[in-house]
Amino acid sequence: MQNVRKFRKLLVFLSFLFIVMISLLCSDTALAVKVNPAGTTINDTLEGDRVDPNCINYGMIETYPDGKFGMHLPDRGFASNFGRVITHGQRAHGIYAAMPYSTVTNEGGGSITTYGYDAYGIYVPNLYSTATNKSGGSITTEGHLDCGIRADNNSTATNSGIIDTKGQFACGMYTTYQLHSHE
């Protein structure tokens, strides 16, 4: 009789654990990723947050206001673009990773196009981040002072795809290295 009670308690506990696990898997909490699915167009930034900073685009993102990014990582994380990202505003970067140690990838088949002034395809301004345009990926910039990929402060930029810049004083890739001194 004692074993039957233990078995029932174990069964109840496992059932509860199973329900919690399924609930987490069906929510963004378990995956910690914001996703724009294929076939979907959004006219706002696909943006992670401090809890779930990661985001993936399979669909289309198109933004118009100045400073409105296509994808944005406000905290350390990753962003992957398999779809299309189009921005029209001034300083409206295609993908912007604000914090150090972030990873941004324009995957094969992904495309990023910026039309605004000083708008980068991918921009990683902080320490030790990685920006990659993979083979089959394309980044096009149309505005003046645009960069296909800009990586600052010891961040890494890699291009195996196509970067096409059309505006005045635009560049395909631009990186900076900042030596920190301790005085």
Results as ranks from 00 to 15, higher is better:
103 T>A: 08
30 A>N: 07
82 F>V: 00
93 H>K: 02
42 I>T: 12
37 P>K: 01
180 H>I: 01
60 M>Q: 11
129 S>E: 02
178 Q>V: 04
58 Y>Q: 07
75 D>F: 03
153 N>C: 12
152 D>T: 06
37 P>V: 09
37 P>I: 02
84 R>S: 13
158 T>H: 02
138 S>K: 11
100 P>D: 06
121 G>W: 01
28 D>K: 14
17 L>W: 12
44 D>R: 15
130 T>R: 11
60 M>K: 14
60 M>G: 10
20 V>L: 13
177 Y>G: 05
19 I>T: 15
150 R>Y: 06
127 L>V: 04
61 I>G: 09
167 G>A: 04
40 T>G: 04
148 G>H: 05
70 G>P: 06
179 L>N: 09
150 R>S: 10
116 G>C: 06
66 D>S: 13
39 G>Q: 05
47 E>F: 08
145 L>V: 10
70 G>R: 00
74 P>Y: 06
83 G>Q: 03
145 L>I: 11
144 H>G: 03
26 C>Q: 11
100 P>K: 07
43 N>K: 12
146 D>R: 00
94 G>A: 11
84 R>G: 10
90 Q>S: 06
26 C>Y: 10
109 G>F: 06
52 D>R: 15
66 D>A: 14
8 R>V: 15
57 N>H: 05
17 L>P: 09
157 A>C: 11
92 A>F: 03
123 Y>W: 08
16 F>A: 11
47 E>C: 13
55 C>V: 06
108 G>M: 04
34 K>M: 08
99 M>L: 02
67 G>K: 03
57 N>L: 15
